[in-house]
Design a protein around this nucleic acid. Sequence first.
DNA 1: TTTTTAAGATTACTATTAGTAAGCTTGTTT
DNA 2: AAACAAGCTTACTAATAGTAATCTTAAAAA
Lengths: 121, 121
Amino acid sequence: MLMKKNEEFVQSVNPKGQKSCDSFHNTIEFIGKRWMGIIIYHLLDGPKRFFELSAEIDGISDRLLTERLRDLEAHGLVVKNQSDPKVRKVEYELTPKGKELEDIIQAIFEWVKKNGCCYEE
Amino acid sequence: MLMKKNEEFVQSVNPKGQKSCDSFHNTIEFIGKRWMGIIIYHLLDGPKRFFELSAEIDGISDRLLTERLRDLEAHGLVVKNQSDPKVRKVEYELTPKGKELEDIIQAIFEWVKKNGCCYEE
DNA sequence: TTTTTAAGATTACTATTAGTAAGCTTGTTT
DNA sequence: AAACAAGCTTACTAATAGTAATCTTAAAAA
C-alpha cells in the first residue's frame, strides 16, 4: 500500500500488534469531523466572513459553524482577522498549514470525478 | 482554488447563492465518518478479517467496526468474502472503487508529514 | 431620533451518533 | 465435555450534532 511509496511512513507495530499512527489517526479524525471538509473547501477560495460561509454552506447552523471555526483556529489551520474590533467585520482565512489541505480536498474531488457519489439518502 | 486546476469542477451557484456540490459533500461526509478513514487505511494492506481489523485499529469497538463495514459494503467500497459459510472466516476487501481512496489517504499522509499532527487531546 | 436590521456569536434543549459492555451462535481446541 | 474464538447483535450511557431562540452592538432606515 502507500507505505511502499513512502518509506518514511512505514508503521511500527506496538506490543498489542497495533500500528502506531496517532498523528495520522488524530488528523484524519479531526478533518473528518462533520462539516470540516466543506468549510475548508469553501475557505480555499480565499478569506471569507462568517455570514458568507453560513450562506454558502447549505445546511450548516451558526452553532456548528462557530464551533468548527474555533476548532480550526485552535489547531492553526485558520486565522480570524478582525482589523477593527469596533466594526463587526470578521474574516476567516486559511493559514499556510490550512492551505496545504487543498491536496486532500483535491484528492476527494478526483475520487468523486472518477467514481461518482458514494452516498445518497 | 482547485476549480482553476479542474475546469470540470467549476461549481454552479443555485438560487440561494450556494455552491451545488452534493456528491462532493455527500462523499466527504461519508468518508469523514468516525473511524472510516482508519478502516480504509488498514484495508489498503489487502483483505483482512474482522478480528484483524479489530486488533489493528486501536480503540474501535466491534459495534462500530461492524457498522462501518456495513456502510462500506452498502456503498460498494468493500466486499465481504466468506468462501465457506460453514467456516467462520470472513474477509473484507476493498473494491476497485474502494482502492482508489488510496490517493485521499495518501494526501492526508503527506499533509501530516509536512505539517505534523493537528490534533491532540 | 427612534426603530429596524444584520453580523457574529451564545445558550438551551432535543435528536442522533458513538462508546461500553455484555451476550449469542457455532465451530474448534483442550 | 468444557473452554475458547470469530463475528456479530443488543441494551444502555455518553458525547456530538441539529434546531431554535436570544444577545450585543453598529449601522441603515424611517
